[in-house]
Amino acid sequence: MITIDNLNLHYDKTAGYNTRKKTGKKETSTQVIFDLSLTINEGEKVAIIGPSGAGKSSLLHHIYQQLQTSAALCSQRQGLVDNLSIYHNIFMGALARHHWLFNLVNLIRPFKQDLNDIATLCQQLELDQPLAKKVDQLSGGQRQRVALARALYQQQDTFIGDEPFSALDPLMKSRLLDTVLARHKSVIMVVHDRELAITAFDRVIALDKGRLVLDSQKQSINQQQITALYQTSAVA
C-alpha cells in the first residue's frame, strides 16, 4: 500500500512539512523524522506509538499525503465547522462522492436517505444528539465522535487516525475502535493507549525522537518492551 524509504522530514511553521532542509542563511525548519524506512501493506491494522514529541503525528501526516485520495483522515484538530450542525459536519465527508449540485441541495435541505444513513452512523458511535444540533454545543467527546463519523462517512478502504479517541473513556474507546477496524480494510492509527496498541492491532510501530525504534507484529512484542521504550525516553 505504501513504502517509505529513508524519509527525512522537516517541519517549518510557515511552509509546513517538507522532505528537504532549507538552505537559506536563516534556518527555520526543524527535522522531525530521521532516516525512516518502512512498508505498510494493504489489509494491515497498524498502531503507531511513542512518547510525546516522537514524531508520530508527523509520520501519520506524511502517510496521509501519500494516500490522500484513497484514505479517510481523522486528525486531532478535527476540522469541524462550529456554526454548522452535526449532520452538515458529517455529510461533508461525502462531498467528493457527489456532484456539487447534489451536495448543495443536500446541505440546504437534507435528503431522507442521507439523514437516515447519518443517523444510523451516529447510533453506532453512541452519539445520541439531534442531528440539527450545532457542534459548538457539544462536549469534547461528542465532538470527537462527530469527527470520527465524518471520516467513516467517506467510506474509504483505509482509515488514518491521529489519536481519534483521546477524550473518551476506555470502554467507549474500545467499542469505537472495534467499529473502525471492522469498517476498513487497512487502518493506520496513532494510539496513546499502549495496551490497546498491542491487543487490538496486527502490528505496532514505535517512534522515539523521530526515529523508528520498533516495528513488530503484535505476537512478537509485550507490554514490558513498550514500557521500557517510554522509560528510556523519559530518562533521556
Score class of each variant (00 low, 15 high):
108 I>A: 15
211 R>D: 06
127 L>T: 04
196 L>I: 08
120 T>Q: 14
136 D>W: 10
110 P>Q: 08
94 A>R: 10
166 S>H: 07
171 L>N: 09
163 E>W: 01
185 K>M: 10
122 C>H: 02
146 V>T: 04
122 C>P: 00
140 G>N: 08
179 T>K: 14
109 R>F: 11
209 K>A: 14
172 M>K: 12
109 R>I: 15
176 L>M: 12
119 A>C: 08
167 A>Q: 09
185 K>Y: 05
159 F>Y: 12
188 I>W: 04
196 L>E: 12
148 L>I: 15
140 G>S: 10
111 F>Y: 13
167 A>D: 06
194 R>L: 15
98 H>P: 01
86 I>K: 00
119 A>Q: 13
162 D>H: 07
159 F>A: 03
193 D>C: 09
203 R>A: 04
193 D>K: 07
130 P>Q: 07
132 A>R: 08
155 Q>T: 07
188 I>T: 11
210 G>Q: 01
137 Q>M: 14
126 E>G: 08
183 R>G: 05
144 Q>M: 04
83 N>W: 11
97 R>T: 06
81 V>H: 07
162 D>C: 10
181 L>N: 11
144 Q>G: 03
157 D>L: 10
126 E>T: 11
179 T>I: 15
142 Q>V: 06
146 V>E: 00
196 L>D: 01
181 L>K: 12
169 D>Q: 04
172 M>W: 02
202 D>I: 01
180 V>T: 06
95 L>K: 07
101 L>H: 14
173 K>F: 00
201 F>V: 02
183 R>P: 04
121 L>C: 11
185 K>F: 05
82 D>W: 02
119 A>D: 13
83 N>H: 13
190 V>I: 10
98 H>W: 09
133 K>V: 06
101 L>G: 11
104 L>F: 14
180 V>G: 04
198 I>M: 12
128 D>M: 13
198 I>K: 05
124 Q>T: 13
111 F>T: 12
176 L>I: 11
83 N>F: 11
107 L>G: 05
123 Q>G: 12
159 F>T: 02
143 R>N: 03
101 L>A: 15
136 D>V: 09
191 V>A: 01
160 I>M: 03
207 L>H: 00
159 F>D: 01
158 T>M: 08
137 Q>P: 04
85 S>L: 03
151 A>H: 08
157 D>V: 06
93 G>S: 10
94 A>V: 03
170 P>E: 06
208 D>P: 04
118 I>K: 00
140 G>I: 07
183 R>M: 13
82 D>Y: 03
125 L>R: 07
94 A>N: 05
99 H>Q: 13
207 L>P: 00
140 G>D: 09
211 R>T: 12
125 L>P: 07
121 L>D: 05
172 M>V: 12
97 R>Q: 14
93 G>N: 01
112 K>C: 13
174 S>Y: 01
203 R>C: 03
129 Q>T: 08
99 H>N: 15
199 T>P: 04
102 F>W: 15
170 P>K: 06
129 Q>G: 01
136 D>Y: 13
104 L>D: 09
100 W>Y: 14
141 G>H: 06
126 E>F: 09
97 R>A: 11
198 I>E: 08
184 H>G: 07
136 D>C: 11
88 H>K: 13
101 L>D: 14
164 P>W: 02
201 F>M: 08
211 R>S: 14
199 T>K: 11
196 L>A: 10
122 C>E: 00
164 P>R: 01
143 R>E: 00
186 S>H: 03
